[in-house]
């Protein structure tokens, strides 16, 4: 039969897509070869970009959306979903990725922001968006703009999990705090964190964000990934951590298994054994103000 009144790009389809990624690892890749390695290792999706975050740090200058040729090459190489990064506020880069067929767009602080006042009006798009956040207010502002998935920002390209932990603990802690509040206190709290009251109340009722919440920014080992899962992440993004390690295939597989068995230290011990070197790390306290990515967009 021919179906009538098909609806595309709805909120349910966007959030549903994000939900299918749960319990999974989404890996940064810069070409078709890396994308195939990620898929083979069991990634649920790949994030296509011009350079991994640690190389963006080294290169300096303005970091932009990847070359469409690269994005298309990656889309053609794998059967799992392909995501792509655009600059904060750069809705034309987002339009381009949507036309190319990217399955989810990351409006990302890892690239140089295009707009210091506004994020993209994500409800104008059929394709779902993921956005970074450091606290509940920031997460709910992004959801209010139409984000179908949140990822805690961490500090990308450092191989240092400390900021990812800080942001996940902050969001989970704020949601736990809502439990003790009555409606009036929630409305007052919403004003304080600059978030819509109805979304704050929804978080309180559900005991979680209204959309899937992944962890990102500094995950470099299987233990890091499992740590973020135990802290309450629905899944993880791994950027430089895989292809800047000494043995990307093995690291990718090990992180997938660590996320699957995040509460079983025996498995994590086994998959972490003899993995070679993780990516070189950076002390986030030694970054100068203009090297810190997480403060971009708020």
């Amino acid at each position: 039969m021919k179906l009538k009144e098909l609806r595309f790009g709805t909120e349910l389809l966007k959030r549903g897509f994000a939900s299918m990624q749960k319990g999974g690892v989404i890996m940064d890749v810069v070409d078709a070869g890396q994308a195939k390695i990620a898929e083979e290792a069991g990634a649920v999706a790949v994030m296509s970009l011009e350079r991994v975050p640690s190389d963006i740090r080294k290169a300096g200058g303005v970091a932009r959306m990847a070359d469409p040729e690269k994005v298309t090459e990656i889309i053609e190489a794998v059967s799992i979903p392909v995501m792509g990064k655009v600059r904060i506020g750069h809705f034309v880069e987002a339009q381009v990725l949507e036309v190319l067929g990217v399955d989810m767009i990351d409006e990302s602080e890892v690239l140089t922001p295009a707009d210091e006042q506004y994020h993209i009006d994500k409800k104008q798009f059929k394709v779902p968006f993921v956005c970074g956040a450091r606290d509940l207010g920031e997460a709910l502002r992004r959801i209010n703009e139409g984000a179908a998935m949140i990822r805690t920002k961490g500090e990308a390209g450092t191989g240092n999990v400390v900021e990812a932990v800080r942001h996940m603990r902050t969001i989970m802690g704020e949601i736990r705090m809502l439990r003790g509040m009555d409606r009036q206190e929630m409305i007052d709290y919403a004003r304080e964190i600059e978030a819509p009251a109805e979304l704050v109340i929804e978080c309180a009722e559900r005991g979680r964000l209204p959309v899937v919440n992944f962890s990102a920014g500094g995950i470099a080992t299987p233990s890091d990934a499992a740590l973020m899962m135990q802290l309450g992440a629905d899944g993880v993004f791994v950027g430089s951590g895989i292809f800047k390690s000494s043995s990307p295939e093995r690291m990718a597989k090990a992180i997938v298994e660590a996320v699957n068995h995040f509460d079983d230290p025996k498995v994590i011990a086994k998959v972490s054994t003899g993995l070679g070197d993780a990516m070189p790390g950076l002390d986030v306290h030694k970054l100068s103000e203009d090297e810190v990515l997480q403060t971009r967009g708020r």
């Binding site: 179906l3 790009g9 709805t10 349910l12 549903g16 889309i75 979903p81």
Partner: peptide
């Protein structure tokens, strides 16, 4: 791809009442 994902009302054999609101992702 995801942009072609859709929702539609779908008659399913054996179901009584209205068609099933099906979400294809």
């Amino acid at each position: 791809r995801q942009r072609e994902s859709f929702e539609a009302d779908l008659p399913v054999a054996g179901l009584v009442g209205k068609p099933f609101h099906a979400v294809f992702i």
